[in-house]
Design a protein around this nucleic acid. Structure first.
Lengths: 218, 218
DNA sequence: TGCGCGCTCCTTGGATGCAATCAAGCCGTG
DNA sequence: CACGGCTTGATTGCATCCAAGGAGCGCGCA
């Protein structure tokens, strides 16, 4: 694969996984030195990331990891909720036995992680769970869109699970969602998924406070 | 604005407006000469367009305007239907008098174009009509996503209206959608919008045939 | 004559160098 | 002492140059 593509994936990973925080500056020369390449592939990678919305390039002022204001973040979460609801609705309509089994397995993994009390593990299994729903929509394109927005929101969702008792509540919602999908209830699935994702918007003041603290610490 | 940005917008426009057809090859040197710049900003523009999905760059083999296979195109239209349904649902819930007025005005413009029998004009007013619905969702991010996918599908939707009597039917559906939104009926709005967009998938064999003929002619 | 191998040329990918622009700091003046 | 303009420095943006990798073509061999 190309340098630019590998760099793009690497930088994207670092943003998604929280190594590079929202607001962090991305200096071309610095990145070039770090990866041992010239500025050209760095520039190409940054431009591509800018198109996905993960970073922003201000003309003549370089690139920074996107830090949407709270209002926009809320819009993004709402859009995520709509995408997930669509995936879930289609999954409920078209569920194959294979996807049903995957879904149940992912739910069990969430249960195990929740009972284990390991936040990082629950976060990972939660991600898998949602990805299974995307795939179960049996619409590859929609699945890609949902994954893309999910990655874009990852830096912010990461802060959500710390809210008190959120893990237990989240798992309960997961269980309800699976139940609705297995029952083939499209409307119920969509409604539950919407609510599940939007909770993160309801708890919004917490998130804003976390962001403020993070950027103050940086 | 930058050269790369202007080039991106220009090339994007040419793809959306059918000047550059799906499958067309995008030669860097050729484009560079045509726009009187070096290959660097051309490369940057092409990479950005690749991230939006409008074009595909194959390593060492250059860029071509994306030509999704029929199955993927169907997935894309289905996703578009879901996005539009979401926009419509939110619009029905949150409609302001201003957006209501815009919606009625856009509907009237569609009526005029439909009665005038001008396909190009109806196509334009149709685009405006849908854009008004996106905006009426009062979610700027969702609106952007819908517009982006809409542009990406434009090269293919363009072929749809030629289907016999489609304009009249399309307008009737528009009227029904506006009615549902003004009534604040979320579920009805979503259902009607889904059906409206998916008609383009139902007529799919026509589209495939058009594509085959076009690529044979090219 | 048909098939396979190798060569050459064309295209892309990356590096480097140069120019333009913006930001910040400094000096002068009111 | 404060404010404004200028200058300088750093950084981006573009052009040019070089290398590497395929694809197509021709030649040779069976």
């Amino acid at each position: 694969m190309n340098h630019a593509q590998r760099l793009r994936l690497t930088i994207e990973d670092e943003i998604v996984n929280g190594v590079l925080r929202p607001g962090a500056r991305l200096d071309e020369a610095q990145l070039a030195e770090r990866f041992g390449v010239s500025r050209t592939p760095i520039r190409e990678a940054l431009l591509q990331l800018a198109m996905t919305g993960l970073i922003e390039v201000k003309p003549r002022r370089g690139a920074v990891v996107s830090m949407p204001d709270p209002a926009r973040l809320l819009e993004m979460f709402e859009t995520m909720a709509e995408l997930e609801a669509s995936c879930g609705r289609l999954a409920a309509r078209r569920l194959t036995p294979e996807h049903g089994a995957e879904l149940s397995a992912a739910l069990e993994a969430c249960r195990a992680a929740a009972e284990g009390g390991d936040l990082a593990e629950y976060y990972a299994e939660n991600t898998v769970f949602h990805a299974v729903i995307y795939r179960a929509s049996r619409n590859g394109f929609l699945c890609e869109q949902a994954l893309a927005l999910s990655r874009r929101l990852a830096p912010f969702r990461r802060l959500q699970l710390r809210v008190r008792n959120r893990v237990g509540q989240s798992f309960a919602e997961h269980a309800g969602i699976v139940e609705a999908i297995l029952a083939g209830d499209e409307a119920e699935t969509a409604a539950r998924l919407r609510a599940h994702v939007l909770v993160q918007g309801d708890r919004f003041s917490d998130l804003i406070l976390s962001l403020r603290r993070d950027s103050a610490a940086a």
